[in-house]
Amino acid sequence: SQHQEELPPPPLPPGWEEKVDNLGRTYYVNHNNRTTQWHRPSLMDVSSE
């Protein structure tokens, strides 16, 4: 059986914070524009500005 090492997730872009809601779900807060989202932001998402 193949065992895959879990890679650590990439660092969050500046201004982002990973949080967990009261149901144990992980979400991400963008403090730059005060938004939240479910999927993890990547540095590539942000660098397109």
Rank of each mutant, 00 (worst) to 15 (best):
L7M: 03
N30F: 02
V20M: 09
L23R: 14
S48E: 15
M44V: 05
P41F: 00
H3M: 04
D45G: 14
N30L: 01
E6Y: 15
V29L: 10
T35N: 06
G24L: 03
P13G: 07
N32D: 13
G24H: 07
P41D: 01
H3I: 15
P41G: 01
E49S: 03
L7P: 02
P10I: 10
L7Y: 09
V20P: 04
D45P: 15
T26H: 04
S47M: 05
R34P: 05
Y27D: 01
M44I: 08
N33H: 11
S1D: 00
Q4P: 06
L23P: 01
T35I: 09
P9N: 12
V20Y: 06
W16T: 07
P9I: 05
W16I: 02
T36A: 05
N30C: 11
E5T: 15
Q2E: 02
N30Q: 05
E5A: 00
H31T: 10
G24M: 05
D21C: 08
T26E: 04
Y28S: 01
P13R: 09
E49Y: 03
T35Y: 15
R40F: 02
E17W: 01
V29K: 00
R40S: 08
Q4A: 05
H31C: 09
M44K: 12
S47C: 10
T36F: 02
L7H: 08
L12W: 13
T26V: 10
S42D: 12
G24K: 08
D21G: 02
N33R: 06
S47D: 12
Q4L: 05
S1N: 02
L7A: 07
G24S: 07
V29C: 09
H3T: 05
G15H: 07
Y28V: 01
V20E: 11
E17N: 02
T26F: 04
P8Y: 03
E17G: 05
P8L: 07
E5V: 15
L43V: 09
T36Q: 09
T35L: 11
L7S: 12
R40V: 06
S48L: 13
D45F: 04
S1R: 00
N22V: 06
E18Y: 05
R25L: 08
G15T: 06
D21T: 11
N32S: 12
D45V: 08
E5R: 15
W38L: 12
V20N: 09
P14C: 06
L23M: 10
Y28F: 10
N22W: 03
P14K: 15
S1I: 00
W38C: 11
H39T: 14
E5W: 00
E5L: 03
T35V: 15
P41M: 00
P10M: 13
E17S: 08
P10F: 04
M44W: 04
Y28H: 01
Y28P: 02
T26P: 13
R40G: 01
R34C: 09
V46N: 12
T35Q: 06
Y28A: 01
R25D: 14
P14R: 15
Y27G: 01
P13K: 03
N32R: 07
T36G: 01
P8S: 14
W16F: 13
N32G: 11
P13L: 08
H3N: 09
N32W: 05
L23Q: 13
D45K: 13
E17T: 08
T36D: 01
G15I: 01
Q4M: 10
P8T: 15
T36N: 06
T35H: 12
R34E: 08
W38Y: 15
V46C: 07
S42A: 10
S1E: 02
P13C: 04
L12P: 00
R25A: 14
G24Q: 07
P8M: 04
P9Y: 04
Y28K: 01
H39S: 15
V20G: 03
E5G: 00
Q4T: 13
P10E: 10
W38V: 09
H39K: 15
S42E: 14
R34W: 02
H39Q: 12
V46A: 13
T35D: 04
N22C: 08
N33G: 15
R40A: 07
L7I: 15
H31K: 14
L12A: 10
P10Y: 11
E17V: 07
